[in-house]
Amino acid sequence: MTHVVTEGCVHCKYAECITYCPVACFREADTFLVIDPLECIDCGNCVQACPTDAIYPEEELPDELAAALEWNARLSTALPLATTRVQPLADADAWNGTPDKWRSLPPEQAPALG
């Protein structure tokens, strides 16, 4: 099993989770993070560290966020490793809690939504 970053991270990227990960499984885009499912050891440290509640264990992923599983797996092969905490995006607080943030991403970064 793996942990999965969901759309709650999009346009926020608080990134506290990076410092709690013992295996460096996070990958970084300009406006969000994803978890590499091949590197994640399912420790769960990141879940409690995320201020937007954007990270779930795979087996607890809500149906409405199921696209995040494919999204994390696909983008983790294309994005660089995130090894240090970065500053949240300047407008992170304004985006926090906004619905349908995946639709604001460029097509190549968006998940396949049903």
Score class of each variant (00 low, 15 high):
residue 112 A to I: 11
residue 96 N to E: 15
residue 78 A to M: 10
residue 24 A to G: 12
residue 106 P to G: 06
residue 14 Y to H: 15
residue 72 N to S: 04
residue 102 W to L: 15
residue 80 P to W: 03
residue 112 A to H: 12
residue 72 N to A: 03
residue 72 N to W: 02
residue 66 A to R: 11
residue 92 A to I: 05
residue 103 R to D: 15
residue 73 A to F: 01
residue 10 V to L: 07
residue 2 T to D: 00
residue 110 A to Q: 12
residue 6 T to S: 08
residue 108 E to N: 06
residue 47 V to R: 03
residue 102 W to P: 15
residue 7 E to S: 07
residue 58 E to M: 01
residue 61 L to P: 02
residue 94 A to L: 03
residue 62 P to C: 10
residue 1 M to F: 10
residue 48 Q to I: 09
residue 25 C to Q: 03
residue 107 P to T: 12
residue 24 A to R: 07
residue 110 A to S: 12
residue 81 L to Y: 02
residue 76 S to P: 01
residue 26 F to E: 02
residue 50 C to Y: 08
residue 67 A to Y: 13
residue 104 S to A: 10
residue 71 W to N: 14
residue 30 D to Q: 06
residue 41 I to N: 03
residue 34 V to W: 00
residue 100 D to G: 15
residue 37 P to W: 11
residue 81 L to M: 03
residue 53 D to Y: 11
residue 48 Q to V: 13
residue 56 Y to A: 01
residue 20 Y to I: 08
residue 35 I to F: 03
residue 91 D to E: 02
residue 86 V to E: 11
residue 70 E to P: 13
residue 5 V to M: 00
residue 114 G to Y: 13
residue 36 D to M: 01
residue 59 E to I: 04
residue 42 D to C: 01
residue 30 D to I: 02
residue 108 E to R: 05
residue 99 P to I: 08
residue 16 E to M: 13
residue 22 P to Q: 05
residue 76 S to G: 05
residue 93 D to H: 07
residue 40 C to V: 12
residue 101 K to H: 11
residue 80 P to M: 04
residue 71 W to P: 14
residue 96 N to P: 04
residue 87 Q to R: 13
residue 80 P to F: 08
residue 17 C to T: 12
residue 70 E to F: 10
residue 15 A to F: 11
residue 26 F to P: 01
residue 9 C to Q: 08
residue 3 H to C: 00
residue 31 T to S: 08
residue 60 E to P: 00
residue 13 K to I: 02
residue 4 V to R: 00
residue 57 P to W: 06
residue 29 A to M: 06
residue 42 D to I: 03
residue 58 E to V: 00
residue 88 P to C: 10
residue 35 I to M: 01
residue 1 M to G: 14
residue 75 L to K: 01
residue 43 C to S: 06
residue 19 T to I: 06
residue 48 Q to T: 08
residue 61 L to Q: 01
residue 29 A to R: 02
residue 24 A to H: 13
residue 17 C to W: 05
residue 84 T to K: 04
residue 99 P to C: 10
residue 9 C to R: 08
residue 96 N to V: 06
residue 77 T to K: 12
residue 85 R to K: 14
residue 88 P to E: 12
residue 17 C to Y: 09
residue 3 H to S: 04
residue 68 A to F: 01
residue 73 A to D: 07
residue 1 M to N: 14
residue 1 M to K: 14
residue 71 W to Q: 09
residue 21 C to S: 11
residue 86 V to W: 02
residue 114 G to I: 06
residue 43 C to A: 07
residue 61 L to F: 05
residue 92 A to E: 02
residue 98 T to N: 08
residue 25 C to L: 06
residue 99 P to R: 08
residue 14 Y to M: 10
residue 109 Q to R: 13
residue 19 T to S: 15
residue 39 E to N: 05
residue 95 W to L: 09
residue 66 A to Y: 02
residue 96 N to C: 12
residue 104 S to L: 12
residue 51 P to D: 14
residue 38 L to S: 08
residue 83 T to E: 09
residue 12 C to L: 05
residue 85 R to D: 08
residue 28 E to C: 03
residue 65 L to V: 07
residue 64 E to C: 09
residue 24 A to L: 05
residue 12 C to F: 13
residue 24 A to C: 11
residue 23 V to R: 04
residue 15 A to N: 11
residue 98 T to Q: 14
residue 69 L to Q: 14
residue 79 L to V: 07
residue 53 D to T: 09
